[in-house]
């Protein structure tokens, strides 16, 4: 281990930590502002609000029909998690175990939806879904959200599958198991931690996926983050505290699942999986 002992090195290290501290402080203060405001009676030009109340949560619940929005969100997220697992895990198995002509091309096909930003491919995708009559419905939202999550599951699962000894599968085959039975009785139990991690990450990403849902959702198929966008967009119509109460509901939902996910994955995995496979 290299030790940094000179004065210059210590000053440099301090400067680095001051920048990190400043960033984290602003980040936490920004989140705290939303939380404090959601409990505020009036908050005008002072450090803290005049008094605290919980009534904004009741009004936000009614005004924004949060129950309906939460149900839609859970339906979308549940379907996306399930379908991306069903499509992604078998594909990852084939990619991990077989060398076939055109594999590079398939890999590129899997990487592209993760590299192209959602708003860029979302507009042509929404156009196609509108032509097909699927946009505006909950199925349109689910289909659009699956576009980045299926490749995401494949990329996470490939290394998990590669580290399983192929002789385990060979043994299952010797005892007469077909691909389906081998999957259900051998692979899925062995891969359970990986599948769990991948699907939890899909869950967190889908709750927070704004662009694709925004472009394809109709009035009855909005998820929480899109409803929040419309509320902020029309700020002034409703009390700011009410919007912040909704923002807190959104934050709690997202961060709760993030905390659960972080029990199974490393934080850096949320960002770096796509890149690891890139070369």
């Amino acid at each position: 281990m290299i030790r940094y002992t000179s004065l210059g090195a210590k000053l440099w290290a301090t400067a680095v930590w001051v920048i990190v501290g400043f960033f984290v402080l602003n980040l936490l203060a920004m989140i705290a502002t939303v939380v404090v405001n959601s409990f505020a009676t009036r908050w005008l030009g002072t450090w803290l609000p005049a008094a605290f109340t919980t009534r904004w949560y009741a009004s936000a619940w009614d005004e924004f029909q949060l129950l309906d929005v939460l149900i839609v969100t859970m339906e979308v997220v549940g379907a996306v998690v399930l379908l991306s697992g069903l499509l992604g895990v078998p594909a990852a198995y084939a990619m991990a175990r077989r060398e076939f002509p055109g594999k590079q091309l398939v890999m590129l096909l899997i990487l592209l939806p993760l590299l192209v930003p959602p708003i860029t491919f979302g507009i042509p995708l929404a156009t196609v879904l509108y032509k097909a009559g699927a946009a505006g419905t909950i199925w349109g939202v689910i289909l659009a959200n699956l576009v980045p999550t299926v490749p995401f599951v494949i990329l996470i699962m490939i290394p998990f599958i590669q580290q399983i000894d192929p002789r385990v599968e060979a043994a299952a085959r010797v005892f007469g198991a077909g691909t389906l039975r081998m999957f259900i009785h051998v692979l899925v139990p062995l891969l359970a931690p990986g599948i769990l991690a991948a699907l939890l990450l899909v869950l967190v990403r889908t709750i927070a996926m704004f662009e694709l849902t925004f472009l394809t959702a109709g009035p009855t198929s909005q998820t929480l983050v899109v409803a929040l966008y419309y509320a902020v967009f029309a700020a002034g119509v409703r009390a700011g505290q009410s919007i912040d109460a909704m923002a807190v509901v959104y934050m709690v939902t997202t961060l709760l699942w993030l905390l659960i996910a972080l029990r199974f994955v490393n934080p850096t995995q949320i960002v770096t999986r796509a890149k690891r496979e890139a070369h």
Binding site: L27, A208, V232, T268
Partner: peptide, 22 residues
């Protein structure tokens, strides 16, 4: 890294609302 993953997870809409206040 856990603290830094929070803004990525919350997404741009929430960050926008938070910064409007902050």
């Amino acid at each position: 890294t856990t603290i830094l993953v929070v803004p990525i997870t919350l997404g741009t809409v929430l960050v926008a609302e938070g910064l409007l206040n902050y």
